[in-house]
């Protein structure tokens, strides 16, 4: 259902979409059966002259069956949904596969700050590339993100990844994603964070490894230093 509106751009997006479709089919079928029976009963048992209503207590086993059987169906559907939901949740939120890269995501009123590893491949070094409201990632690499907030609760949501995680002040929350297609998409803050909540959009730029390397060469403090040093070496 979701892919019709928004492409799936992460390794687990397909799983989330599958779960949503599964729930749609299961509860959708229950829903349609219920509504059809409901409207049919209203039509079938509309008041007719000379037809008295039946007296049914619903306490007999043969009558209760009409409740208990649908009830068992709901139970079975619930079990199926629970199993798949837990599986998806475990993969997306609980189990962290080993990372190729780590980025730091810092939320504050009302902007996102992203710290990318520079050429040295690690964050929290002098080589970090700090950007505001723009996150650059490579397609096909597994990223961990460390999510922090400086003031109030924000939420880091990347709809194309089917990813969402609140940023809680006082906590560092780690999550992961791996992009599967290139493009530029929205990052949203989905938890109300004050008057600028509506003005907190950011973009995620998913690049091919080559594009990403070029971007890094242009932005990395180390390579900038190298470039500015280079002309003097040539002379």
């Amino acid at each position: 259902m979701i892919e019709r509106y928004l492409p799936a751009a992460s390794t687990y997006a397909g799983e989330v979409d599958f779960l949503i479709n599964l729930i749609l089919v299961l509860v959708g079928s229950c829903f349609i059966v219920c509504e059809v029976v409901f409207f049919w009963l209203i039509f079938r048992f509309r008041k007719k002259e000379g037809v008295a209503p039946e007296y049914i207590t619903g306490e007999l086993k043969s009558h209760k069956r009409w409740i208990t059987i649908p009830h068992m169906v709901v139970l079975v559907f619930d079990v199926i949904i629970v199993v798949f939901a837990i599986k998806v949740w475990y993969d997306v939120k609980q189990d962290l596969p080993p990372a190729d890269h780590t980025v730091r995501v810092v939320a504050q009123q009302w902007a996102w700050t992203f710290a990318h590893p520079g050429l040295d491949g690690a964050i929290d070094t002098a080589d970090d590339i700090i950007t505001v409201d723009e996150l650059h990632v490579k397609v096909g690499s597994l990223y961990h993100f460390r999510l922090e907030s400086r003031d109030v609760i924000h939420s880091f949501s990347v709809p194309v990844f089917r990813l969402k995680q609140d940023a809680i002040p006082g906590r560092v929350i780690t999550g992961w994603f791996e992009a599967t297609m290139t493009g530029t998409w929205d990052i949203q803050c989905t938890e109300i964070c004050g008057i600028g909540h509506g003005l907190m959009p950011a973009r995620i730029v998913i690049e091919t490894p080559e594009q990403h390397a070029a971007w890094m060469a242009q932005k990395s403090p180390l390579s900038i230093a190298a470039v500015t040093a280079a002309p003097s070496a040539e002379e």
């Binding site: 409901f38 009963l41 209503p53 409740i67």
Partner: peptide
């Protein structure tokens, strides 16, 4: 998740009961 989906059962049952009440009525 488990408790949340469990609560769908009594609520669904309540709705089933209301729909079943219509059966055989004079609406």
């Amino acid at each position: 998740t488990v408790t949340t989906l469990l609560i769908s059962i009594p609520i669904a049952e309540m709705m089933f009961v209301y729909i079943a009440t219509l059966y055989g009525g004079s609406i």
